[in-house]
Design a protein around this nucleic acid. Structure first.
Length: 350
DNA sequence: TAGGCCATCTGGTCCT
DNA sequence: AGGACCAGATGGCCTA
């Protein structure tokens, strides 16, 4: 019987996770003879690799055995009388041997699983020190690695004095080669820059950058209280992230609570500042500084009616108040937008 | 529904 | 011999 038969079997019984292949292999164990295709037929849709795999699996023996068998068959096919095969005789696949093989395979699978978990844990650690981190909106593995590479690159530029963390160039370096959604995530995250004053306090309390000290009140790291607006249910940025944002322009927050610097701190879980459109009938008190102009990263965002809208309103004292108009937004989306509008309000009225 | 991402299984290879 | 590492294959889940 040839590969075609095998292929048909494989198609009718696709193997999946958790030992399906092994089960299939066991169930096909009786096909040892069938594998030595006499008719030489080759099934085109199935890759050579796959066929080899199946063959290997069915045999549950090592390469040497297969090569030896194939050699033997080739010789027999030629019909010539050949000297007897040298070397150790092929071991028979006894039931005990099958069980040993299976047990070894199960152990190896478990090791491989735990190895991959370790790798994923390391990737998670990496995600946590990236300029944007969200438990709910996790960066993919490849994007995490790309962002890490960009981040190192961007920071080294900053250290060399050729780049300011506030500049558009810094952002562009961070987003270099990233997908659009990830770029949006990074841009949105950096818009949430907290007051440097607070960062300083954090560093102080946490025992320096990235310190693991714990502050007194494990609540939101900061909040901006605005009459008429609901209390933001947003999460917090981790201290490690706050440090990245130090270069951003100060905004006046009333710090009403403290921040845990340790890993126990609940990281910001929201979608990290969705694209925002601004509307409103108001005039700026002054032209935005070059810094502020440079921080207009929202130009990357596609316009969509699904995005939250920030509206600028004139307050009774002549101050502008930016508000989120879309109250129908998901809670976390609203929260992150609320943070941005709060910052904008503070910035504008500064 | 196609495509992206992921977890898992697996056999091969290298090293101890 | 057994473990670590690697890469291919596969199916599940999610999203646009």
């Amino acid at each position: 019987m040839g590969c075609g038969f095998l292929q048909a079997r494989m198609m009718t019984k696709p193997y999946g996770k958790a030992g399906d292949v092994s089960q299939l292999v066991s169930s096909l164990g009786w096909m040892d003879e069938d594998l030595s295709s006499q008719d030489g037929e080759v099934a085109p849709p199935m890759s050579h690799y796959k066929l080899t795999r199946i063959a290997l699996g069915v045999r549950e023996v090592d390469n040497k055995d297969i090569e030896e068998e194939e050699l033997e068959e080739d010789e027999n096919q030629g019909g010539e009388k050949v000297p007897k095969r040298r070397g150790p005789k092929k071991k028979k696949m006894t039931k005990a041997r099958q069980e040993r093989f299976r047990a070894r395979r199960v152990k190896a699978n478990a090791r491989e699983r735990s190895r991959m978990h370790g790798l994923n844990d390391a990737l998670d650690s990496l995600r946590r020190v990236m300029p944007c981190y969200s438990k709910t909106q996790k960066l993919s593995k490849i994007e995490t690695l790309r962002l890490a590479r960009n981040y190192i690159w961007a920071l080294s530029e900053v250290l060399e004095g050729g780049q300011s963390p506030e500049s558009r160039g810094f952002m562009e370096m961070l987003c270099n080669g990233l997908s659009q959604p990830t770029s949006n995530l990074v841009a949105g995250c950096l818009q949430l820059g907290p007051a440097p004053g607070m960062v300083d306090r954090l560093e102080e309390k946490c025992g320096g950058p990235g310190g693991a000290g714990v502050l007194e009140q494990p609540e939101h790291p900061f909040s901006y209280t605005s009459p008429g607006l609901p209390s933001p249910p947003y999460g917090s940025l981790e201290a490690t992230h706050l440090l990245h944002l130090k270069g951003f322009k100060a905004v006046t927050y009333e710090k009403v609570s403290s921040h845990e610097c340790s890993s126990a701190t609940p990281p910001y879980d929201g979608p990290l500042t969705p694209p925002l459109s601004i509307s409103g009938n108001f005039s700026l008190k002054q032209e935005p500084s070059s810094h502020e102009a440079e921080r207009n990263y929202t130009s990357n965002y596609p316009t969509s009616q699904h995005y939250p809208v920030a509206t600028a309103l004139a307050g009774p004292d002549g101050h502008a108040v930016f508000q989120v108009s879309r109250y129908d937004l998901p809670l976390d989306s609203f929260a992150s937008t609320y943070m941005v509008t709060s910052q904008m309000t503070a910035l504008y009225n500064e």
